[in-house]
Design a protein around this nucleic acid. Structure first.
Lengths: 358, 358
DNA sequence: TTGTAAGCGTTATCAC
DNA sequence: GTGATAACGCTTACAA
């Protein structure tokens, strides 16, 4: 019951110092102390300095609950990511958090486990907590979430994609364009027998877009990917391995395998080697994300590098502006980068001309 | 200025529904509504149900700021981790978050970048926000942080270690014992020429303890590790590679390399292969953490598996109990597990007997 | 068991 | 430019 007290060195607890205490010591009104803190410009410099001294002397810190109650702002941002276990999300979240704390905001983090129902729940819980803004990942979110956003008017931004449904602004890359470029790169190398490994989930529109990019580039080149040339997999190394084995069992002539994430690609490379296939000589493999490991595996992985930290910072800046009522862009398109390493090369000579094996 | 309002479908904004609105509709006093929410047991069942109906009908949600102001509890926990980029932390944090949200708590996450000053700053900022409890990683935290904890009386628990300084309770494993066991395992295999790769930082007592365990087991076996047999490295694959190269350049006869994390070990394995050394035939390499990748690399890595999710859940349970004033354990020791895979074997015959090369 | 009313610590609208 | 004062929405003695 000794609400908001501070235990002093001897264990006794004294009450938290409040604005009134500072006011009394400094011989001013609480209102002035509040002004010193919130609108320093409108108070006489000498008085302001004096008050400031007492604030630091008494080590007064405003009660955030009272402040929030009065002002309606919690100075708090929420982020809902599919999982923290992916280095790529972690990097954005760290950048987001760092940028926010520079501006006096604190970050709530929730994870949805790639489940739209959980995402909605977490969103509701954040809104109930009076969150000032929300960061989401990807553009597929279900109608309920979108109406929740509209009804509450909370500023929301979605990340890793270049556009999201329902008028939600986005910051990220053009996933489809990126894999299209990757595919064109492989086509340029002379590949004609492709396979794709994708972690498709209803809530994962990044992967969906990446797969679309592959198929689009291929069909523009007159190549149609059969259903069995596209393997769905959960996002893990083990699934990447399994997917590659299945793909090469069904289509042994495949010379290029495009994966929608590095994790899948690295799993696929491991399995290829285990099957006695040299990468890239027998089969070229590509990833997406450019995680730390991608450059370190053997052979180093050809992949798409995405500006994860920049996405986090950009999301922070967007929300801070939106909350302050400043004008904000509809969405922000960031550049990705095709990083060519050693997991890709031209196909074995015999395969360069489409010579269908019987 | 339309504080806490909700934009209705047409864009007009109506005020947030509050406890008084529910009370009026239900023909009861605000106090009753509050009681229904906070102490359902003490209100007559029929009345309670009736009020509940209005609460859901009006979709009333208590204002958390007002609630916090009045009750002194924010229903919020903070976690300060060195970095989110490590899968092993991410796993604990997710488990922590999931357990907390089951109990109506929300999680603030901050990252310290392995910097004690930043950790202190984040801690202060969390405390100013009226956080109810804090999760830390590791046991080395600087005096200032410890006095802050004592003075404010905020419940704190530290994770991944079995004991922390300054009377802060801990939940985790015995890092030193784990590497001692690992070292004894390698000794049992017949190794006598060891090397260690450790990511030592002042703030990282886990690594310190792990290194101590190695040295202790070795010295009990009559083997002394020379300074050049212990390579310090930052925590990255690239540094693991570099460290291995240096170690084997200075001590080419080394047959066993113990690393304090899987990341370092995997980097070391990559480099060993590049140097033309077979793992484990020429050199055995071990890790620590048992990340997903450890089982997937070639050869699969012998390592120590730590119960990351359990640490997260345990930390949540601890804090929830502590906040509720229930009795809590001084600290919790969790079991680790030595996972023997294929990156370790007996040393080449010639090396089994300590036969010093000139 | 339920209602009344007094704050919780702050900010903002008034006067001065 | 500064000082009273009235909320902000809720919880909890205390009274009924």
């Amino acid at each position: 019951m000794d609400k908001k007290s501070i235990a002093d060195p001897k264990g006794r607890s004294r009450p938290r110092v409040k604005i009134e205490d500072v006011a009394r010591e400094a011989n001013v009104s609480p209102a002035t102390v509040s002004r010193v803190l919130n609108h320093p410009g409108i108070v006489r410099p000498e008085l302001r300095d004096k008050v400031m001294r007492f604030i630091t002397d008494l080590s007064y810190t405003p009660d955030s609950a009272a402040r929030a109650l009065k002002s309606g702002r919690m100075r708090t941002i929420g982020a809902i990511v599919p999982t923290l276990g992916l280095g790529i999300f972690a990097e954005s979240v760290e950048a987001l958090q760092n940028r926010l704390s520079e501006s006096g905001y604190t970050l709530f983090i929730a994870n949805s486990q790639y489940d739209q129902r959980r995402e909605l729940q977490e969103m509701q819980s954040l809104i109930e907590r009076g969150i000032d803004g929300i960061v989401l990942v990807g553009g597929s979110h279900g109608r309920e979430l979108r109406t929740l956003v509209e009804q509450t008017g909370v500023p929301v931004i979605t990340t890793y994609v270049s556009k999201a449904g329902g008028g939600i602004p986005a910051i990220g890359i053009d996933n489809e364009r990126a894999t299209r470029e990757m595919t064109e790169f492989l086509l340029g190398l002379g590949h004609v027998r492709f396979g794709a490994i994708a972690n498709i989930l209803p809530s994962n529109d990044r992967s969906r877009a990446r797969l679309d990019g592959i198929q689009r580039a291929l069909s523009e080149a007159g190549i149609r990917l059969q259903p069995t040339q596209v393997i769905r997999a959960d996002h893990s190394l083990a699934q990447g391995r399994k997917a590659l084995r299945q793909l090469l069992t069904d289509h042994p002539a495949t010379t290029a395998v495009i994966c929608t994430t590095d994790t899948l690609a690295i799993g696929a490379m491991t399995e290829a080697r285990k099957m006695g296939l040299s990468v890239p000589r027998a089969v070229s493999i590509t990833g997406f994300d450019d995680v730390e490991l991608a450059a370190q595996v053997d052979p180093p992985l050809t992949t798409i590098s995405i500006p994860a930290a920049e996405i986090g910072r950009g999301a922070a800046d967007y929300l801070i502006s939106a909350i302050a009522g400043r004008p904000v862009p509809k969405s922000v398109l960031l550049p990705y980068r095709l990083v060519v390493r050693s997991s890709t090369t031209s196909p074995p000579k015999a395969d360069r001309l489409p010579k269908r094996p019987r």
